[in-house]
Every structure is written in C-alpha cells, then in structure tokens.
Design a protein around this nucleic acid. Structure first.
Lengths: 164, 164
DNA sequence: GGAACCGCTGGGCATTGTGCTCAGCGGAAG
DNA sequence: CTTCCGCTGAGCACAATGCCCAGCGGTTCC
C-alpha cells in the first residue's frame, strides 16, 4: 500500500512485534526474538524498518498529566478570524497547558486539548488561550470520564490482518 | 501536592529525567546517570518512583496511524440518549478506528477521535460508530492540519519549576 | 536455465549495560 | 542526639547489545 508515494503498511510479524512492544515496553531485542520465534537479526531489521518508515515514531515516556498535578482535561473549539491562523497557532504553541492543536474543517476552526490544575484553574488557562487577537469565539467541553484512553493496538491488529 | 490523597508532583531532577527520556528514549540507565550527573542508583530509584507514582505510565511505541494506512483523522461529537451511555461506550470500544473516547459536560455528550483510510472510508467508520441505538446525533470535524502534535514536555517543565 | 538480489537464519565475538548488593555520608525530622 | 531517607560510588555475576559472518530458500530479471 502506498500513500503519497510512500509505501506503508505492516505484515503480521510487524503487528505482533508492535503489540508485544506495547505490552512489555522495556523488553529487549533478544527477548522479543525468543517470544516471536524468529532470529534476533530479523527483529532488529524489522524494528529499524518500522522506525525509519515512520510507523513507530519513538518510545517516549507516556506521562500522565493528572499525576503532574493537572487532573482536569478539556477540549476547546476556537473560531479564528480570517487570515490569523498562523499567529494563533504560534500563540497556542507557547501555552504549556495546550497539549494538542488541530485545524479542522469549517470556517477557520481549531480544536485543542487543554489541561488544568482544577476547574478554577481551567478559567485561567482558557483566558490565556483566548486572550489573543485572532480568536473570535471559544467553546469548551470539560472531560468527565475517559472510557477509551488513547490507544492504537486494535488498529495495529486490523492493519496487520489487512496488509500482511 | 496531593490529589485525592495521592501525593503528586515532580522536582527538577525528575523533570530533566523525563525530558531526557523523551529526547532519547532508547537510552540506558547508566547513560542517563552520566548525562544528568547523578549516580546510577539515583536514576533507578527516580524511574521506579515515577512509574509506581503513575507519572510515567509506560514506554509503549508511539505508532503513527498515517503510516499504518489511516491518514485521515476526525473528531466526532456524539449526543447520547439518556441512560444509554454504558452501552455506547462498549460499542465504541469495539471499533478499532476509535482511538479515544471522552464523556464531556453537557447533555450526554461524548467526544471521540477517529481515523480512516480516506475521506470516503471515513463515511464507513462514522456509519459504524453512529449505527447504534443509543446515539441520537453526531457531528464530525475532519482534521486538516496538526500544528501542535500531542505533547507533554512543556507541561513537564512547568510542573518541575513549580513543584521542585 | 542461470545470476543477482533479498530477507531470514544461526553462530561467534568483544564490549557494554543490568540487576543486585554494600558501606558511607549529609540533611531533615522527631 | 538519634533516626530516617535519599544520594553516592563501588563491586560483582550475568545478560544483552552491536557487529560480523556464511548459508539458504524464494523472487525477479535477463
């Protein structure tokens, strides 16, 4: 499979490798080769390929904002004044509590994920986010529960079935 | 600092450790201790503490859905019929393209992150997502750009300053 | 059919890192 | 003053890594 000229997709061994790595991240290459029943060099080569492919972006630590003292999460939809998109992006990138920012379909809309120390603190964060000239309007939804935390394994398994 | 009886927060050394780990994830404990200028045992102890604290959830591979063949991302807001929340959650959890699900303030609303193989494929995904009894209405925003990809480092640095 | 290529195998090797233990030391709390 | 706790620096046996190699079965291409 190719997307914009780049070949993508994974086979079953890649899929098993990623799942194994997700379940036991601190596992070594040698142990992986034992679990998967292939040679160590094969695991090395697959891992290198998945990383230079961009399928695996990295192995950074997954940090819980709640444990850092930011237990409140919210999503804010921002309406942007025409032509101010670039400035708004630069502004939002400077706010540590903005964990993520997307531009979406619709008239100059953006969606961002925020965290705060408390509901009261969220007001401060929102003020800082929207206290910028290019932002016309903002509407915020506070997260109460997170029944499905950010995950990728089911998709990896499906991709490995389809493609391998 | 405590939240619901659990002590949270990180000091400057914790912060530097997390940043270092985010920049070079495959680094070893010994190399970390050299870079940070502390003893190996200290790094070991800090890492163990951060993980049992829940500050560091794990070191799973960060997989790019685009490289798996799912380059389209969207956010869907779902309106749920009263009392059907649990069923809807269970339903959405079975859809691999649902990467994340939150319940938010407002009348039975949920917000979920979706991926698809193409804009056309997104229709299939949305049909599968909303083809369930408890869902009254859905509105979808397709992501065009991602100026700020999911990040945590700026928040870690702020938390380390405040708390350490 | 033959040649070149590619991914996987299984082995060996020196180097490095790990898990574990220990005694010592300084600051903070009681 | 004594206890506790986190950090230090060191040692040790063991395991894993990075790197090399020859061989082998399957494709592709001429």
């Amino acid at each position: 499979m190719t997307i914009s000229g780049v070949l993508v997709g994974i086979d079953r061994l890649d899929g098993r490798l990623i799942v194994l790595l997700a379940e036991e991240p601190r596992i070594g290459v040698l142990e992986m080769s034992r679990r998967l029943g292939v040679a160590r060099g094969t695991v090395q080569a697959r891992l290198d390929r998945l990383q230079s492919n961009g399928v695996i972006r990295g192995f950074g630590p997954q940090v819980d904002p709640g444990a850092l003292g930011y237990p409140v999460t919210a999503f804010a939809t921002l309406e942007i004044r025409q032509g101010q998109g670039g400035d708004v992006r630069a502004h939002l990138a400077t706010v540590p509590e903005v964990l993520e920012l997307h531009t979406t379909t619709g008239g100059g809309d953006m969606l961002c994920r925020l965290v705060a120390r408390s509901n009261a603190d969220l007001q401060r964060v929102i003020d800082r986010v929207v206290g910028f000239d290019g932002i016309v309007r903002a509407s915020t939804a506070i997260v109460m529960e997170n029944p499905v935390p950010l995950r990728i394994i089911p998709l990896v398994e499906q991709a490995a079935r389809d493609d391998g």
